[in-house]
Design a binder for these strands. Structure first.
Length: 334
DNA sequence: GAGGGTCAAGTCCGT
DNA sequence: ACGGACTTGACCCTC
């Protein structure tokens, strides 16, 4: 378990060496279903083996990179692309061959041990196709498979043993809402139930919906989503945030931070927080304002976000990844 | 190596 | 109806 007394700022999925540049030695690779389908099975399996070896190597390298950062920067969201095509019915059998399972056990257990030994806080964020509260039963089935793929990785790494020793975050999604999440939870593995977090979204299920789940799972407050939803800069003293913290049952919570794109609200004063009503009156749509910035370019937003760090770790969701989260921290030092 | 077409899946917003 | 956005433009093919 990571050190709960460290106030972390983290980043997601990729490590950049400079603007728009991801070091291939530090990042995973993937393929497409379509490409695999065009190969002979032997060639496709060969491709999946190559990717498996590459991704185990680069994830280990990501952790080494993180271990060299100060403790308060050792928080990282692993990409969902670790095992390409794992949840596709044609390719799942690849991953259940004895030699592949042995390889995964060997390398992922080492990765988990390394993260724990080096005080690195890890998470996943299953993507847009994981909609546990869909009104479509088939989509729920696929979403459970998708979530359990992440749970398999979590188990291989030796997490999911205690409540929120690892975070696996999704949005409520779908039409069923929080009650759909409660129903899906009953069908998930123990590791999945221990790691599931639910995040408030911009347009549909916001904080109030999340809070219906406070007894069922940990809640992630996305402060940018809430701003898009309401125009409000919620404060850490807000009673709703206190309830979000309670949902973590003593584990240090995580919040998500992002900002509207700097090339959408061009020339916006970086020392002033964007005003939603004013921007909408100027013709900016919620959909445009929702998109994530490259960097933590707005110092006023940064300062507001950092007021949460007494209570929660901050996951920065910005296109330039570690370059953006570093910027947030360096501002804090000033 | 550069450039262009392709890519499993869900859901929503805006045009 | 369709493109864009979402935690992420990356990957593959052709020239």
């Amino acid at each position: 378990m990571f050190d709960q007394n460290v106030h972390r700022v983290g980043f997601a999925c990729k490590i950049q060496t400079s603007h728009d540049k991801a070091d291939p030695k530090l990042n995973t690779k993937s393929t497409t279903i379509s490409y695999l389908a065009r190969q002979t099975q032997a060639n496709a399996y060969g491709k999946l083996w190559d990717l498996l070896e590459h991704n185990m190597t680069t994830i280990q390298a990501q952790l080494v990179y993180l271990s060299k950062l100060p403790n308060n920067q050792r928080m990282f969201r692993l990409t969902s692309d670790v095992l390409p095509a794992y949840t596709h019915e044609d390719w799942m059998p690849f991953y259940f061959q004895a030699d592949v399972v042995a390889y995964l056990e060997k390398h992922l257990s080492k990765i988990g041990e390394y993260a724990r030994a080096n005080d690195i806080r890890l998470s996943f964020h299953p993507g847009q196709y994981c909609v546990l509260a869909s009104e479509n039963p088939g989509v729920i089935e696929n979403s459970i498979t998708e979530f359990e793929y992440h749970a398999d990785l979590i188990r291989y790494m030796g997490y999911g043993r205690t409540f929120q020793d690892f975070k696996c975050n999704v949005h409520v999604g779908g039409k069923l809402g929080p009650q759909g999440i409660v129903a899906a939870l009953k069908r998930l593995s123990p590791e999945a139930r221990n790691t599931l977090t639910i995040e408030n979204a911009e347009f549909t299920w916001g904080i109030d919906a999340s809070l219906e789940l406070v007894e069922h799972c940990a809640l992630v407050l996305d402060i940018h989503h809430h701003w898009i939803h309401s125009g409000e800069y919620i404060q850490p003293t807000d009673s709703r945030f206190k309830r979000v913290c309670d949902s973590w049952r003593g584990v240090r919570p995580v919040i998500h931070l992002s900002t509207s794109r700097e090339d959408v609200i061009v020339d916006h004063d970086p020392s002033v927080r964007p005003d939603l009503a004013q921007l909408k009156a100027m013709g900016f749509t919620s959909a445009k304002l929702r998109a994530h910035s490259d960097y933590c370019w707005n110092q006023a937003v940064n300062n507001w976000a950092l007021t949460f760090s007494t209570y929660a770790d901050i996951m920065v969701e910005a296109k330039q990844k570690n370059l953006a989260s570093k910027q947030l921290l360096e501002q804090n030092v000033q």
